[in-house]
């Protein structure tokens, strides 16, 4: 399934995850993310796909008692981002995330996008303005907000807010971008906009997308992984997963026999 011209940007190796209550949420996950490709995670609720996604930028470190086992290695530097010696803040500077519900700060549009850069200590106004513009263009929002960058982000529509959050994640030039069901709180038109945006970013950025919507996985992703009850059942090119799944469970899910 791995092609010669694919570079692996990151991969989970024998990765296990335990929540603080002892729940073994992820079991021996082995999953590569190919550089500049979109990988989709699908599976029924509670299968661990969001847990896996959130492991990639160490979000679980925010809550005491959660435990990782195994490795998630980033290339080309071969860093195991789960290593206790690796600072989760450093990981988050390299891997950014877009959440399920748009979560802009109660600040201006400009400040929302600039925040990641400010956290990195960037003070140069010229550079900040350039980066914000670039990120907003990258998130296909620039034309709609260029005349009102100082407006509060809450004045934007839900779909615009989500694109703003994507811009915020893009502004820091991440190596990998994580999307946790980025369109589940949006209407079909806003969803189409986000999908189009992800399509535009394809080839420039490595992306991992959790989605409940199988059509979405089929439309936007290059690779798809099917998860069930904490196990990674199958990972392959999206076309292959949807047309000729190897595992019976995958087939059941995509044909609607498990929901």
């Amino acid at each position: 399934m791995a092609n010669a011209d694919l570079t692996t940007k990151a991969e989970a190796r024998d990765f296990n995850f335990f929540y603080s209550n002892g729940h073994h949420a992820l079991k021996n996950i082995n999953l590569p993310l190919y550089e500049n490709k979109i990988t989709a995670l699908i599976g029924p609720s509670g299968c661990g796909k969001s847990t896996l996604l959130r492991s990639f930028n160490r979000m679980h470190d925010l809550y005491p008692g959660n435990r990782y086992e195994g490795e998630i290695v980033m290339h080309p530097d071969n860093t195991n981002i789960l290593d206790a010696n690796v600072d989760p803040i450093e990981v988050r500077m390299r891997i950014s995330m877009v959440f399920q519900k748009p979560n802009p700060f109660p600040k201006s549009i400009f400040e929302n996008v600039a925040y990641g850069l400010r956290v990195r200590g960037e003070k140069n106004k010229r550079l900040l303005a350039d980066k914000v513009e670039e990120a907003l263009k990258g998130a296909a929002l620039w034309d709609e907000v260029k005349d009102r960058l100082q407006d509060l982000a809450f004045n934007l529509s839900g779909g615009q807010q989500q694109r703003l959050c994507i811009a915020r994640a893009l502004a820091t030039d991440p190596e990998i971008m994580l999307f946790d069901e980025p369109t589940s709180a949006l209407d079909p038109i806003a969803t189409a906009n986000i999908e189009e945006l992800m399509n535009d970013l394809r080839g420039k950025l490595t992306m991992l997308v959790v989605t409940h919507n199988m059509q979405q996985a089929a439309r936007v992703s290059d690779y798809t992984a099917y998860m069930y009850l904490g196990d990674l059942i199958e990972h392959d090119k999206t076309g292959d997963i949807f047309i000729k799944p190897k595992d019976k469970r995958t087939e059941d899910y995509i044909t609607g026999r498990i929901s």
Binding site: D77, D87, E90, M93, R94, T172, D173, E175
Partner: peptide
């Protein structure tokens, strides 16, 4: 800054985090 900016400036980034 290119796409690998964090990685390229990893020492500066680490100093800043510190």
């Amino acid at each position: 800054m290119g796409t690998a900016s964090t990685l390229e400036n990893i020492d500066a980034v680490r100093a800043m985090i510190k």
